[in-house]
Amino acid sequence: MSLEIKDLHAQIPGREILKGLNLTIKPGEVHAIMGPNGSGKSTLSKVLCGHEDYEVTSGEVLLDGENILDMAVDARSRAGLFLAFQYPHEIPGVSNANFLRAALKARLPKGEDIDAVKFYKQLYARMDQLEMDRSFTSRSVNEGFSGGEKKRNEILQLMMLEPKYAILDETDSGLDIDALKIVSRGVNAMRSENRGFLVITHYQRLLNYIQPDIVHVLKDGRIVKTGGKELSLELEERGYDWVTEEPLAAAA
């Protein structure tokens, strides 16, 4: 069981962005990917989820042994892959509760519906954990939300959908320290031996609250260094320039 990325190459027309990326995330592990702007961090999250702007030219992504690269965006989601977006989209006129119900219903066999009482009980419990006001259930998805509210809403969706593997794309961007703590608490509550995380971030700060097991440095479309928690502190201190590719480590 793992989310296994093997020699992944992906491009937008005319420009290769991921250039042979290897990464294996096992359930129970939290991996952090750090890297300078333009290194391919956000591209990786979108490629894993099947965004149509990117073309995968070679490589494999196996989710618990199944190659997901031929699967549609929604099928990958239902297979257990979740992305907390850096810029969550607004869905005018669709309430948060209806959106979550639709997403949960999409995981049931056709014709079956979710138990509304159980659903709201769980929803309210999760919202309490994230210190979200109950009024968010009836507000349109992300419409008029502050940056912090949007990020909390992403984590709420993560908590409700309970994916096998969750990618957090710059979840810390735009958060003040209080919001960062709340969001991190939500993520930590979801850590379990059955779930793997990939935390993409530009700054070390987030990793004080979501402690990673393994830290990778992404540079020019490849993982150039892998280490423990201490690597993130070193990056914070020294920046990214000193990190050069370690051909042996990357091949290992």
């Binding site: 549609a72 965006v73 929604d74 669709v94 959106f99 349109s140």
Partner: peptide, 21 residues
């Protein structure tokens, strides 16, 4: 893309967007 990433099919995502509108 956002809606499909949450597991809705393309048609369901469209329907939900239109119903929201």
């Amino acid at each position: 893309f956002y809606l499909m990433q949450r597991g809705l099919t393309e048609a369901e995502a469209m329907s939900l967007s239109v119903n929201g509108f």
